[in-house]
Structures are given as C-alpha cells and as structure tokens.
C-alpha cells in the first residue's frame, strides 16, 4: 500500500488551543486510494487533526502537505477547492435549509451545472431516503439521515480525499452498518478516506492502516490487521 507519493502528509504537526497543546508532533501519511483511520479516546486530538487539515484551526508548527503542496497558507475554502472534503463531527447539516439546498451547497465550488445535476442524482441513488426528503428541512431528518446527508454533501464537491469525523456517533447499529457499507463502496470507487472513529473495531475493519492517538501524540501505527490483534489496542480501545 505504501508505494508512490502520499496524497496527504502531516509532518511534526503541532496545534495549540490557547495555552493547551492539543496536538504534538504528529506524523501521518495517507496514500491515494487508501482508507486510513485515526483511533483514540475522547479528547485525544482526533477531530483536532482533521480541523487542522481543513484549516479551520491554525497549526502552531509543522507541515501539512496535500499532493506535495502545503496547506498552511490556504484558507478553508481553498482547501475544499484543492480536493479535500470534511464531514464534521456532529454532521453539521444546515438545519434551516432543505436537503436539496444542502446538497447543492456541497457543490458550491463547482460551475458545471450538468455535472452537478448528475451528481445530485447519484447521491439520491446512493441514499434513496434523501430523495424522499428532498424538499424537507435538514433539521427535521433523523440522525442517520443527517449523517447520510453530510456524507452526500461532501461528495458533491467531488473530493479526492474525504475526512470523516465520527460517522457512527449516536447512530443505531443498523444505520451504522448501512453507512459503512456506503463508505466501502466509495473507497472502491476511488475516494481516499481518512476516518476518525471512537468505535475502533468498526474503523479497523474498514481501514487498511491505522494510527493510535493518545493525549495529542501518535503512540503507534500499523496495518489494521495487526492493530486489531495488538494487545495495547485491544485493552484500550477494543474492550
């Protein structure tokens, strides 16, 4: 898997929240086509890592490279234009807008109306429930539907890298299975995924490789298969 040039590379990434060090010297690599997961306890810095990549929080030191280009000088909207879509923690659908408006906003950076219409249709095929609720306000959807909407919205920008923050959070097991099945399809269709999850079993089943984050630092990383049987991971995260 680790052949070729990385799609995303974090080097010595350090992030502070005020006086508190949230991330310390993070090294992480994602190759094209991979699913890589970042696992760890609540507050370990998983979401912070994704937020730093999307540039909605500032990095204190280190480097973030996407296809070899530094993201550190870019605004968040530029990062999206470069090909990174972020499905934030808690889904963050625009509750007072319709499902369709949410999806069209996902394609905000694009100007090809025919392509956008095709992709909209594709999302509705992928998530038929969104089609049924097309004209409904996103705030009236169930948690699972909102997660589907958040993922579909991110896909509308045609990203090359998808950052997923806790897609299973607060959802019923059957909905989680449905969402992860979709994520697998997406990955086989060529979308690279960096997945943040508290549910380590689920994440390691889907990912090729994983990083274990503890108190803002990477403790170790390995292939998902090896992490699954690693005693330290088992004890701390697999229960």
């Amino acid at each position: 898997m680790s052949a070729g040039t990385p799609l995303l590379e974090l080097k010595h990434l350090t992030v502070h929240y005020g006086a508190i060090q949230a991330l310390k010297d993070i090294h992480l690599v994602v190759y094209p086509g991979e699913v890589v997961t970042l696992i760890g306890a609540n507050g370990a810095g998983k979401s912070t890592t994704l937020r730093a990549i999307s540039r909605i929080i500032a990095a204190k030191a280190g480097e973030i490279l996407f296809e070899g280009q530094s993201l550190l000088a870019e605004r968040p909207d530029r990062v999206v234009r470069m090909g990174i879509a972020h499905v934030p923690e808690g889904r963050r659908v625009l509750a007072r807008m319709t499902v369709e408006d949410n999806l069209l906003l996902g394609a905000y950076i694009r100007g090809d109306s025919a392509g956008i219409a095709d992709d909209l249709e594709q999302q509705f095929e992928r998530f038929p429930r969104l089609r049924e609720r097309r004209e409904q306000l996103a705030g009236t959807l169930s948690g699972g539907e909102q997660q589907m909407l958040a993922i579909a919205r991110a896909l509308m920008s045609r990203p090359r890298l998808l950052l997923l923050d806790e897609p299973s959070l607060g959802l019923a097991p059957i909905v989680v299975r449905e969402i992860f099945a979709t994520l697998r399809q997406l990955n086989s269709a060529g979308v690279t995924v960096l997945l943040v999850e508290q549910n380590a079993t689920l994440a390691l089943q889907m990912a090729a490789r994983g990083y274990v984050l503890e108190a803002g630092s990477i403790k170790f990383s390995d292939t998902a298969d090896k992490l699954m049987i690693d005693e330290r991971v088992k004890q701390a995260y697999l229960g």
């Binding site: 999307s54 972020h86 996902g106 905000y108 919205r153």
Partner: peptide
C-alpha cells in the same frame, strides 16, 4: 441564486460553510 444560498448558509453556520468551500 447560488450566492443567495451561500449567504443563507453562512448566516446559519459560518464554519460549516467554509468547509463547503464558501469564502465567508
């Protein structure tokens, strides 16, 4: 309009809007 839709998005949640590629 597309810009109007983006305005409504920024009014609702500007961080999420910037994650959608909107220059807030």
């Amino acid at each position: 309009t597309k810009t109007g839709r983006a305005l409504r998005a920024v009014a609702e949640d500007s961080t999420t809007s910037s994650l959608l590629g909107i220059n807030t």
